[in-house]
């Protein structure tokens, strides 16, 4: 599924799903039932008879994702399938992708959303400028980080003392190696600045660290 691909234009979602399945050799009755199942899953059943050109970009995206996953192909390549989808629908698509994988399909999915990769990926390949910087199970990549927690806070005088921080303009991310260090940092920093978020580190932090290490190696 190419990133800017739409499954139809003059077609209704129902037509696009049904007849694309027929074009793959499905019997018409099975194709109709499958189309209905997927349109309900992505919340497009009530729009099933409207031409796709009259629907919003986000609704067309949903129809396209449904059309691809409904094929039940053994292997699928999805290029950023959840771009432009709202949170609820994105979760429906994630569920559909996981169900498809559980049914035995292999899905190669590209995304810029590290949280998406962390949640639905069995294996993750992190790529920077076309070069693989790491690969493995998401939790393994996160566990390899030397930090356990991140603290998002308002920038303040003296932030430069923290070597493990990321500049976010008027905010910054400071990392803590353990629960004890996190508690200590929150207490200390809470006196001098505003703390916005305290969270466990994730794949995004792993990616930033790996890219930063890779750039340091190149510079050296």
């Amino acid at each position: 599924m190419p990133q800017d691909f739409t499954v139809g234009w003059d077609h209704t979602p129902s037509e696009a799903l049904t007849w694309n399945l027929v074009a793959r050799g499905w019997p018409i009755s099975d194709a109709k039932a499958q189309a209905r199942r997927w349109l309900e899953l992505v919340g497009l059943w009530e729009y099933r008879d409207r031409p796709l050109r009259t629907l919003s970009e986000e609704q067309r995206r949903r129809a396209t994702v449904a059309a691809v996953l409904a094929t039940e192909a053994d292997a699928m390549f999805l290029d950023e399938p959840t771009v432009e989808l709202d949170v609820k629908v994105r979760h429906n698509v994630w569920r559909a992708i996981r169900e498809t994988v559980t049914d035995g399909a292999s899905i190669l999915l590209t995304t810029h959303d590290m949280r998406e990769a962390e949640i639905i990926g069995d294996r993750v390949v992190l790529i920077d400028s076309g070069i693989t910087v790491a690969e493995g199970r998401p939790y393994e990549l996160v566990r390899a980080l030397p930090y356990e927690y991140r603290i998002v806070l308002e920038k303040f005088e003296g932030l430069e003392e923290f070597t493990s921080s990321i500049d976010l303009g008027d905010r910054a991310v400071v990392y803590a190696r353990s629960y004890g260090e996190m508690v200590r940092l929150v207490e200390e920093l809470g006196r001098v600045t505003t703390i916005h978020l305290v969270d466990k580190v994730g794949l995004e932090d792993a990616y930033l660290r790996l890219v930063s290490d890779s750039e340091s190696r190149e510079a050296a």
Binding site: G8, D10, H11, W19, V22, A23, R24, G25, P51
Partner: peptide, 18 residues
Amino acid sequence: LLRQVLGLAYLESRWVKR
């Protein structure tokens, strides 16, 4: 094969509606 042809013919003929 006939289903494939039928499916594609249907998909490719939808300009009629527009």
